[in-house]
């Protein structure tokens, strides 16, 4: 045996030990991922009942918060529509000079918090009043028009507190005599929606935690049943990442499949309630179209499912693989 050859063998061993194998690392990394993805899919298919159960539980856990999210989205559209009717009426002082009035209107029109400004002159007001309350010409006989000029503004902001502060500012205007705002029931609805939104986040957190535990437990069982396999893998020199990878994919698959089923559940539920909602809207003379989970919602649902599944698997694997 030549000395050079001996050196070569030693260098080869040393290089493998230093992880400088000559094969393309990126390619073998991708192949490893592909293999792990296939192996874990196979594992799921090999245990159809328990896999399906896990997926259904994940789906229910995800469908609840996301179903609520769709309802919330609908409520938001509703409040936004109604909000367009929220107006603040500014009753101007009597005997207001024309220039003062113009300055006020200018000021209001340039206010970024105000979407629309409409001026109703005393004459227009009177005309409207005559049309709506026909008091047999009584109003026509008045010597003087008793009505003030009114500016009706539509706030750009929707949040009740912001509307309130706008209301206060309006009250302080020198040209304004009094201000009226009527939106109590809208305010209640707004806060109801806020309440449900917080509920959604709390639910998402709780049920998300649930998903992590479900996946974690399923993966833990899978790890237990393949503990002999894992031992052999490690004896042959598989590193932690290699052993972990198929299980992480399994968690990911569970999460994504659960999200898919959750989507179907939410979709079906929305279909089911769309009929009474449509009837309700029709009874008010509206044509409200029930919103489905939009593309962002669907992507979020799948993203949340995938991440939670992965985290669950990751937690289960972290404890197990370390034990050599």
């Amino acid at each position: 045996m030549s000395k050079i050859w001996r050196k070569y063998r030693l260098a080869e061993l040393a290089s493998i030990m230093k992880r400088e194998h000559k094969n393309n690392r990126l390619v073998s990394y991708l192949i490893n991922h592909f293999n792990a993805a296939i192996v874990s899919l196979d594992r799921i298919i090999c245990t159809p009942i328990s896999s399906l159960l896990t997926i259904v539980v994940i789906a229910i856990a995800l469908a609840l918060p996301f179903g609520l999210a769709v309802l919330l989205q609908n409520a938001k559209v509703l409040t936004q529509n109604w909000d367009k009717g929220t107006q603040i009426s500014l009753y101007l002082k009597m005997n207001l000079a024309e220039t003062e009035k113009q300055t006020l209107l200018q000021q209001l029109r340039s206010d970024s918090n105000i979407a629309n400004v409409q001026y109703i002159s005393p004459e227009e007001g009177l005309e409207t009043l005559q049309k709506s309350v026909d008091v047999q010409g009584v109003l026509k006989q008045l010597q003087e028009n008793p009505l003030p000029g009114v500016v009706v503004i539509t706030p750009k902001v929707t949040e009740p507190r912001a509307v309130d502060s706008l209301f206060n500012i309006m009250q302080q205007l020198s040209a304004v005599d009094s201000v009226r705002l009527d939106r109590t029931w809208f305010e209640r609805l707004y806060y109801l929606v806020e309440f449900v939104r917080h509920g959604f986040l709390a639910l998402l957190f709780l049920f998300g935690l649930g998903v992590v535990f479900i996946v974690g437990n399923t993966i833990r069982l899978a790890l237990q049943s393949s503990s002999k396999e894992i031992k052999v893998f490690k004896l042959i020199g598989a590193n932690d990442a290699y052993v972990r990878r198929p299980f992480l994919y399994t968690g990911l698959y569970y999460g994504v499949a659960g999200a898919g089923l959750a989507w179907v559940i939410v979709f079906a539920a929305m279909l089911w309630i769309s009929v009474p909602v449509h009837d309700l809207a029709a009874s008010y003379g509206g044509d409200f179209i029930l919103q489905r989970l939009d593309i962002n919602g669907v992507l979020t649902l799948f993203g949340v499912g995938a991440v939670l599944g992965w985290i669950g698997a990751r937690l289960a694997v972290m404890k197990h693989v370390r034990k050599n």
Binding site: L10, L13, A14, I16, M17, K18, R19, K231, V232, K234, L235, I236, G237, A238, N239, D240
Partner: peptide
């Protein structure tokens, strides 16, 4: 192979085993 293996990291252990050939008492 010239490397002290007394205090290898986990990944170091894995690459050492990949480099070796091992026959176990029970085939594993």
């Amino acid at each position: 192979a010239g490397q002290n293996i007394s205090h290898l990291s986990r990944s170091g252990v894995a690459s050492l085993r990949r480099a070796l050939g091992m026959v176990f008492q029970d085939a594993q």
